[in-house]
Design a protein around this nucleic acid. Structure first.
Lengths: 215, 215, 215, 215
DNA sequence: CATGAATGAGCCTTCATTCAT
DNA sequence: TATGAATGAAGGCTCATTCAT
């Protein structure tokens, strides 16, 4: 009565979980409803009892994750003081973001794949990134970096900020396999890089970039 | 020897071009051979006259591009002097890389999509990136940055170097549409950022990162 | 337990029956899945719900019949006393064999066609014939004809024994049409020939053949 | 100028030979024009220069063989004296028939396969058999066996005479492989059986069969 | 909730045949 | 004669979705 996944919703959840798995492995188009059913240990028709269509499963999955990032912003980023860039609190939050994204790497893969399709009207990559991006934008502005325009910030914070992290959690396993390195250690190193160095570099860049710019 | 659409290979090339387009728009799994045929203004069966299967078209497309990046390395990166980081020559080469990647954004989308599928054995993202990555690795080493190990360099140069560029050319149009900015200007800004600032930031990071590292 | 078209297997059986028909009429390669579906009054996709592939339908059909001949041997041939060659019991069994083969003429056609293809690894003709052949071999041996070796018996009992019967049931309709005779009467005559005369002739041959042989 | 396979007809003949091979291996429906072309080392279009269609190649192949059996009758069977059943001349002719059929086993396979398809209007099996069958019919009649009617003779001489031989040459290789025997030796044994014993058995049967018959 | 069976639309691929040279 | 390229018409198989129970 309190939680909403009591009683008869385990089936629904199992389907959702299975779908996420399969979508992440094969992409939406490559995923088969049959396989989702098999992995969810559910009858295929049951999927259509809970969901209107394959598309709607995807939609639900994506919405769920977009909401979680929004929640992350509201919960963890809200209280983060502007000056605390080098503070432990800040580092903890970055760690949490990495952990969150790592835990959502399946969805991230899915979102990224759909976003990369040039012919679709799917903008969920940006919907997903947006809360964090907006937050850093405000944060940086509050820190006094006023010289930079919105477009540039949006551009840089997405393509040199969130996107690399998302791609990292999505590709690190394959990267590890291809180059024969260890994925876990790489995760630690990458996180550290971001947490301790990248952010400063970015701020430097943003500052200098504008100073030297004419065009 | 002059033109490459002599004799009877215009058809083959048209098919390849159409396939690249459709794959980039819909992803491999979402692409329909019928549509490739229609766009190539070719009979569907002709596709199978030239190619064994849909998969082999993809393979050919990818191989073609991997080879082009290898060629890029051999032609343009080979003569680039180490000290010329701030030189015009260097900037020109970076411009050329951006132009190359921009011109290959369809393939990049395709490669990225396939790479993101967790369930595949496709490593072409890394095969694609490798020549450039290897080159910068050697280059940085020749510049005297010896403190960094291969793994870290591989990790950073891929996930904060090539991947962001690739994702940018792949996503910038959608980004522009979603945020209501202009894609062309963004391209210019992003290139500039990379060419003039990012490289220094990266070198800084690589240097400091290692100094401060213990683990 | 009584009827075998209980529950949800009528569809499967209809498909099997239709396939047998179509394969017998057109040969496996000439048969169209669409036509099987149409005759089975089933949706084409249903065929693939029950069977992995067209090949597997064929396999199932053949296995089914090979098994029936094995059962025939176990049930009817087992109790047949050696001396009863001229007995009514013997004649009854021969009649039953002819009836069985007549009732399976579709499968026999299919098996024969596949066996005649020189390029295939299909040995089902012999698998089909084997139980009866083995039985007569043991039987003849028990009757005291020891002079003949296995190879010769195998050879003769197949190519002058079972094969002619199989070809007869397969071709008698066309034969009747081509020569303008009546197929039913031919069936009766052919059965009678076998039942009352051929067997003795064969035994004669087997006996004399060996006596006169040197090479 | 004298023979008709001079100059430009080697190509045609190569195609015919290749087609016979492929048809025998795969059956008409399983055969691919592409493979015929490849084996004939000819361009696929050339096949259509010489032949109207795949069907016509088959027709030509069959006609050719039917004609050869007719010629065989005219040349070798014509002079065979009725009393010579046990003569060397007779045995030589039987040997020649076996050799002829062995040399034509590809076509025999093809003809048999097509004949076995219940749904076709193809009667070439009987057209092929006919000359020999007619000849023995006349021969037996001349020998004084008048009690037997045409239908019975037609029936028996086809289904216990020619068909077994045809099936033997078609299947002996597979038979040898399946049972682990030697095909060559089997050929010798089978020929001997026919030549020296079967014919007498058949005559016996024909005689007795009729005596004892009422229906 | 749950399931076995069924279906329409469509997909990749094949194939006999033809065209242009 | 000979050939590389092209094509229309399927053909086997798949897939998301629905039905009946």
């Amino acid at each position: 009565m309190g939680s909403d996944n009591t009683s008869g919703n385990e089936g629904r959840q199992r389907i959702l979980d299975a779908a996420r798995e399969v979508f992440a492995e094969k992409g939406f188009d490559g995923a088969r409803v049959d396989e989702i059913a098999k992995r969810a240990k559910a009858n295929k028709a049951l999927i259509y009892y809970y969901f209107e269509s394959k598309d709607r499963i995807l939609a639900e999955l994506i919405k769920e994750s977009v909401d979680e990032l929004l929640a992350f912003k509201d919960i963890y980023l809200k209280d983060l003081h502007v000056d605390y860039i080098d503070s432990d609190q800040y580092k903890k939050v970055v760690d949490m973001l990495f952990d969150l994204l790592e835990s959502k790497k399946d969805i991230i893969r899915i979102i990224a794949i759909e976003g990369l399709k040039g012919g679709s009207e799917d903008y969920s990559v940006f919907q997903f990134i947006d809360p964090v991006m907006q937050d850093s934008q405000e944060r940086v502005r509050k820190m006094g970096f006023t010289g930079i325009d919105n477009r540039k910030f949006c551009l840089f914070s997405i393509f040199t900020g969130m996107i690399p992290i998302m791609m990292f959690v999505s590709l690190k396993d394959k990267w590890a396999q291809y180059y024969g390195y260890d994925g876990q250690e790489a995760m630690a190193e990458f996180t550290k890089l971001y947490k301790e160095h990248f952010i400063h570099a970015m701020i430097d860049i943003l500052t200098h970039y504008d100073k030297n710019s004419a065009d």
